[in-house]
Every structure is written in C-alpha cells, then in structure tokens.
Amino acid sequence: MSLKPAVSNTDHAQGNLNADLVIVEYGDYQCPYCGAAYPVLKELMGQFGNQIKFVFRNFPLSEMHQYARSSALAAEAANLQGKFWEMHDAIYENQHYLNESLLLKLAEKLNLDIHQFEKDLENSELAKKVDSDFESGIISGVNGTPSFYVNGKKFDGGAEDLFQLLSTNEE
C-alpha cells in the first residue's frame, strides 16, 4: 500500500528535509501506542536525524480518544506560531495528563500568544487540515496508530522496527 497523497510542503517535517529517506507517521496524540513510540522516534531522530526526513500526519481516533482531535488542533494551532514540533513533543511527553486545560498550559509554556492560539483552535482551516490528514490515512491504508510509511510504502512494523532498519543500514 502506498502513501496518498505523497509528502508535500503542506506536511509537517523535521530532520534532514533533503534526505532520501522519508518516514511518515500517522499518529493520534492520545493513543498509548503512539505515546510508547514517541521516545523511540525521538531517539531515532537523535541518532539518524541527518539521514531522515520525518513527517507527522494526524490520525485522531476521536470516538475512542476524547482529546485526540483537540490535541491535533492544538498542534496545528501551535504550527501557525511556528511551534508545531514543540507542541507535538509536549503533548506526547504529557500524554498521561491530557485534557483541554493541559493543552492551554502547554501553549503558555511554549510562550505562544494564547489569545491567538485559542482563536486558532476554532479555525475551520485547521479542522480541514486534520480531516484531510485523516482521509489521506484512510486511502493510504492506515489500519491503526501509529502507522508508518517509508519512502511512500506502508511499513509493517513499529518504531522499534524502524530503529532496526536504520541500524542495519548503518552497518
């Protein structure tokens, strides 16, 4: 199964933006498996970040996870103030305490303009972005979170397996 649409400049990317290796994660901020993958991915990027372009797309399971969608919107709102990854990381690092007031607290901690942040949470463009990420996941064959794509192809494994892949490449 392949990634549709392909990675573009509307995606959130970190690492080496010109890398040949592109990893895409479809994630849900409240999903415990995504939470468990987070530190592994962090280490992966710490070690191999110069070889990887890492992209995050929203895949909130809103019916199952009460705060998944508001978290996705919070990260998108932070993005408008240039702090997508900071918010992404802060949410995963505090996943156990996730609720709406935590999202505001994190925004304060990141020194975001809170008034603007709160306004942006209601921005329908951001809702559309989250929906279109979700829809792209569906047509790309996402069957749970986290789901990973390596250079556009679905990767049948988790974060640990990605680490394995990179470590083997190294040898």
């Binding site: 019916e63 199952m64 069957n143 979170t145």
Partner: peptide, 16 residues
C-alpha cells in the same frame, strides 16, 4: 486490542 481495532477504525469513518 484497542488502537488497531478494525471496528474502531470504521467507527471513525461513518461520515465517509
């Protein structure tokens, strides 16, 4: 198991 549950996934897709 929860997050990879097939029915939970379809539940998110009803509007599609």
């Amino acid at each position: 198991p929860v997050c990879s549950d097939q029915m939970a996934l379809y539940n998110e897709m009803l509007k599609f």
